[in-house]
Design a protein around this nucleic acid. Structure first.
Lengths: 188, 188
DNA sequence: TCGGATTGTTCGGTTTGACGAACGCGCTCG
DNA sequence: CGAGCGCGTTCGTCAAACCGAACAATCCGA
């Protein structure tokens, strides 16, 4: 049989890399992750070393403990570095209806984007530590007012405003009033 | 960050069902599939019976032999239209601030997502033809009220509501009042 | 400086997944 | 009828995934 669907390379090394990457992203130790997943740390150690061939249940519990969908541990990250910048979106007029779409950011293949809805209450700011290198955040404020951005470069946003900034440096969120926004976290 | 990601039910039964489903779709016998995958048919028999906990390599070889991507064997069959109402959905509590993020859709590598802001005025509906196969649309309504979704499966949304549906079938947008929304167009 | 805690690794022992053979069943051909 | 074939299941054996403990290395507070 031909390898029609480009089934990626054998997942042993991929899993090893993904486990270490996601664990470091979560900022927890190998011992701690093994504890949360209910595994012996020796097992996890060998997995991250690339030795071993985990069972589904084992790898699943790791995915749960990391808060990461299962496929992210199996599919190769396909790290090709190319960050697409958000343009001042061209407005795409729909052909036949009262409908306008503004392109904020075009993604490239190989980038992974997680979609969140984020609710913020005024009060202390949220200090977000740097994520993995190459990550980019996109925020569209739906209602309220917030200040967001890297330290020293924060921007004040009103409803409908859009901002993007690198997520691999320390940055803040601060709500000036009760707000909610759509957040797209872009890794690679 | 707390991990409250709703990881679906343990995949043992899911895998069993997926294996049988995909095998019957391919129209081959259990014995034949075991032969192609290089496994003992006893192993495959127990897997389809729901007994057993396959290793990654074992399940991988089955995915290759069936010509289906790995994730299809692990993740439960995808619901076509999925709505997350405002305030619902898995919440990621930030550790130290008044900050709540709700995960709507986690992206896998290899998916390409374009980010739009879409403004709609009430009036005639927008008829969108099917896009390229495999595309998925995500909408978070920021304000107003709209009806959106595939033909016959349209859902009415209010502010904060989220809906996702396949973009490779004909679908409509219809604003019931002046609205705007964040649209993520996902290809792959 | 020294103890204690935590990090990740390595080493025997146990559980279990994978294998091959044998089995019962249903169908088809001689 | 009965021999032959293919189907899927069950059983004993073996390798290996997983575990627990012991290990050096590092960090941090006393």
């Amino acid at each position: 049989m031909e390898r029609t669907l480009h089934e990626p390379a054998p997942p042993l090394a991929t899993i090893a890399a993904a486990l270490r990457r996601e664990r470091e992203r979560a900022g927890i130790s190998l011992t701690e992750l093994a504890r949360r997943a209910g595994l012996a740390k020796s097992t996890l150690s060998q997995l991250e070393a690339g030795t071993g061939n985990p069972s589904i249940e084992t790898l699943w519990s790791l995915g749960v403990a990391l808060g990461v969908p299962f496929s992210r541990l199996v599919e190769p990250p396909e790290t090709r570095v190319r960050v697409i910048r958000a343009g001042e979106g061209p407005r795409l007029q729909a052909d036949e209806a009262d409908f306008v779409a503004t392109l904020l950011a075009a993604g490239s293949p190989h980038t992974r984007r997680d979609l969140y809805v984020m609710e913020l209450e005024p009060g202390q700011a949220r200090d977000a530590l740097a994520h993995i290198p190459g990550s980019v955040e996109h925020i569209v404020l739906a209602s309220g007012r917030i200040k967001a951005g890297p330290v020293g470069e924060q921007v004040e946003l009103g409803p409908g405003d859009y901002v993007t900034f690198p997520g691999d440096v320390d940055h803040h969120y601060e709500a000036l009033e009760p707000s909610w926004a759509v957040l797209v976290m872009e890794h690679r």
